[in-house]
Write a protein that binds this DNA or RNA. Sequence first.
DNA 1: TGAAAATGTACATATATGTGAATTTATATG
DNA 2: CATATAAATTCACATATATGTACATTTTCA
Lengths: 246, 246
Amino acid sequence: MIVRQAANVLEIMEFFAQTRKPATLAEIADHFGWPRSSTFNLLATLSEKGYLYEPRPRAGFYPTPRWLAMARLISEVEPLPPWTHTLIAELSAETGETASIVAPAGVMAVFIDVVESQAPIRYFATVGHRVPIHATASGRALLLQYSPEERDSVYRKIEFKQYGPSTPISIEAVEIELRNSIERGYCVSFADYSRDLAGAAIPLPIGDRRLSVVVAGPEFRIGPKIAEVAALIARTVDRLRPKGPG
Amino acid sequence: MIVRQAANVLEIMEFFAQTRKPATLAEIADHFGWPRSSTFNLLATLSEKGYLYEPRPRAGFYPTPRWLAMARLISEVEPLPPWTHTLIAELSAETGETASIVAPAGVMAVFIDVVESQAPIRYFATVGHRVPIHATASGRALLLQYSPEERDSVYRKIEFKQYGPSTPISIEAVEIELRNSIERGYCVSFADYSRDLAGAAIPLPIGDRRLSVVVAGPEFRIGPKIAEVAALIARTVDRLRPKGPG
DNA sequence: TGAAAATGTACATATATGTGAATTTATATG
DNA sequence: CATATAAATTCACATATATGTACATTTTCA
C-alpha cells in the first residue's frame, strides 16, 4: 500500500528540485491538482517541521537548507569511494553512453550514482532510479554475488512479468541467464525490461557491499559493440580499483 | 492540521541522519512506537519512490543518495554568498557562542545557517530551527526590514503567548521593542522566548532578501557583554560584506 | 477608490487510510 | 534437521484524515 501523503512530500520536493524557485500554495495545488485545503495542510506541516520557509513575503514557499544538511549527514556514511565515480565518468566519456553504479533493494536494483550520456538520444536515468533485479544487466550482476539460498529468497518475491520479448519469466530462465553471464564474463540485457535499451554490467563488490557497474544506451548503438563495452568496463575497473589487501 | 504521514517521512529521515546506519523495519517501528504494518507501508512507499534501499540483504533500509542529489539541486538556487558562512564562523569563534543566519517564514524565523558554539553549555540550534519572529532578537532584526503594513499583516497572525517574563505580548509591546532596537543599534532578547537564552542580532539584507545575523548563548555568559557582541557583529559584517554597487 | 478576483484559512463530514489480528516467511536453538 | 521464535507481509474494518464548502484576507484592475 502506498502512503499517499508520504509520497506527496517526495513529489513536492521533486517539484522544487525541478522548478528551483519559490512557489505559492495555489501554484503547487494547481500543479498537482490537489485541493487547496489539502495542499495547505501539507505545506503547513513541512513548514512547521522547518523544511519550508518563505524567502520573501508573499512570494511563496521554498525548501530550507535543512534538507541539504540532513542529506549530507546521511550520505557521509560509507560513501562510495571516489574512484567509483571516476569509473563511471570515464566509462560514460569513452562510450558516450550512460554509466551507473547500482545497488540491491529487494527485488529491485537502485541506481546510486549515475553519469549520463551527452548524446541527444540516450538512456535517461537518475540516482534513485529502480529497475527489476532479474530483468536487467545491472541487476543480474548483483544476483551473481548472492548465494543460491539468497537468490531463492529473492526469486520467491519476484512477480515475473513479460516487460519485453526477451524478459526471463521464470526462475529457471533467470538462472540460465546467470550461468550464461558467468561464461560470457559479463551480464547483458537487450530490452529485457526497457524498450530499445541495451546494457552491459559486471559485479562490483566493495568491502562487504554488493554493487555493480553498468553501461547502457539505445540498442542500435550499443548492441553491436556490447562485448567491447564489457571489456572496457572490466579494464577500467582493474585500472581504477585500489590494489592490495582490504 | 498536521499531516501525520508527511511528518513521519521527515522523522524517518531525521532518524537516519542521527543513527547513520541501516535499520530494519522492526527497529524503526520500535523506535517510533509505530505498528509494524504502518511502518511497512511507509518504508515500502519510500523504497518504491527510490529513496530507500537495502545496502545488504537483511541488514535493513538506508536512504539512497537521491536525497542528496535532490537537496543539492534545491540548494543550488540563490545560495547564500560564501561570506555569510565566514561571518557566523568568525562570530562563533570570537564569542564562543552559537551564531546563525536567519530568514522569515510567516510568523516564525528560520535558521538557515548555523555555526554552533563549542562550549559544553551552549545554545543548541540547527538549520531549520524555528522561533517566533516577534519574540526573538533574530526575528525582530527581520521585522525591522518590513514596511509598517507588512508588519501589520504579520502581527495579525501572531498568537501572543507569554513564553517568558519578558515576552512582548501585544502588538504595541513589539513595536516599542523595535523602536528601542533602532535607537540601540541592534536587537536583543533576554529569555523572551527560550529560558536562560540571550542573544544579539542585526538585520542582514542581501539583494532583495531579508535576513538577519544572530549570536546567542546562555544569559549569564552573553548577557554582561551583549553590547560588545552586537558591536562585534556589526564590525564583522562591515569587514566581510563585499563593497560597491549591487 | 471600490468592486471583483485570487489566494489563504477553518471546519464538519464522508471516505480513504492506518492498524490489529492473522498468515507467511526467515532465523535461532535444541 | 525439526521446532520455536522472531520478523515481515497481507487484509478487512473502524477511525483518523483529506477534502468540499464557506469564510476571510489580500491583490488586481477599472
